[in-house]
Design a protein around this nucleic acid. Structure first.
Lengths: 200, 200
DNA sequence: CCATCTCCCTAGCAAGTGCTTGGTAGGGTA
DNA sequence: TACCCTACCAAGCACTTGCTAGGGAGATGG
């Protein structure tokens, strides 16, 4: 049960892939064991439950992700560049940890109901504060439209960024960075031609 | 097993709610029966399987939804107004059929692997063609930016519209129509102030 | 007044679920 | 030689899953 074994890391990566592909509940411990070429009981030499596998996967991912966000905020780039950096960092996370992002997207809501995964809600709150800060700062600084419903824009942003994990292919021709730039183009300037209408 | 019974419709609505809230696999036939105040075996008087419940729910919803889309297209409003109408109709679907939309969003990918649900993939293709038509028409007509990656914008649109079902509350203060308008504001004109940058 | 139909119950089955147990092969260390 | 370690297997336990068989109470209609 030592946390440093390479075999253990391997099994965790396998579990993450299966959780992402089939969903947490639909993935059985036998599925994971089969993929690893061992019997289901043998998994319990490395982990003490299926739940603790998901826990470890999500914890590691979120710690890394929010570490990156903290660095971006600390750099104090101003609202617009901070927004761009956070979006780029999020797409980068989709590129490097697609399975973890998928699990976070698809299972967080159900898992968060359990006491053990209460940190998921905390992270959500943290994320929401981050976006609200960026947006309100931007509106105040005059770089974002002042008629924005900040709370609504936050939801759109959050969803828009993460939901890309459903179709993004890390090995495809479209790099995460390019997708991020396209997204930012739409988000910041819209898809319509011509001058913006005044007011709302 | 008659399809016209009011009790049957009631049970189907109950199942839809549970499928949406807990997910299809996590919802047991006993859960559905409990919610209806009967025993699990009694459900099989009305339906011949759990799968057929999901099938009926999704089929009915998609038939209705794509009927609306067809009407919009037939009205030939031009690219911009068509886009607006489709977005509004989609948010309206989220308002009126939140459970069905949630099931469609969360379970379609898994269900579509089964032969029985092959119409899900067909609807996806249909949906994609619809959006691509609107967007390319709009670019050609000069109402949408010509540097748009149409395929990417399509994904962006599709995901962002439907994902709102995760937070939208039909009984909340924010009406679906208002959300749609805000969303269209962001999509068409962006959140940034100032003149649009030229080119990409 | 009997027959049929609707809707539900009682009881249970076969398959599959996460997890536990006792044990073993192979290797390193003293 | 003695001991401990990692990584696994074989077997199975308690429980849950979707689903089935057979029957019964009450309303409907000829």
């Amino acid at each position: 049960m030592s946390k440093e074994s390479p075999r253990r890391t391997e099994l965790l990566a396998l579990a993450a892939r299966l959780f992402a592909e089939r969903g947490y509940v639909s993935t059985t411990v036998r599925d994971i064991a089969d993929a690893a070429g061992i019997l289901s009981g043998s998994l319990y030499h490395h982990f003490d439950s299926k739940e603790s596998m998901a826990d470890e996967i999500l914890r590691g991912f979120l710690d890394e992700l929010f570490g990156t966000y903290a660095e971006i905020e600390a750099a104090e780039l101003g609202p617009r560049r901070t927004l761009e950096a956070v979006v780029v960092a999020s797409f980068d996370a989709i590129h490097r940890r697609p399975h973890e992002v998928a699990i976070y997207q698809n299972e967080a809501k159900h898992l968060a109901q359990s006491e053990r995964f209460s940190y998921l809600d905390e992270r959500n709150t943290e994320f929401r504060r981050l976006w609200n800060r960026i947006l309100t700062d931007g509106v105040r600084a005059g770089v974002f439209r002042e008629d924005l419903d900040v709370e609504l824009v936050y939801r759109f942003l959050r969803d828009t960024v993460w939901v890309a994990v459903r179709w993004y292919n890390p090995e495809g021709p479209l790099a995460a960075d390019a997708v991020a730039k396209q997204y930012l183009g739409i988000l910041l300037d819209g898809i319509a031609t011509g001058r913006r209408r005044a007011g709302k």
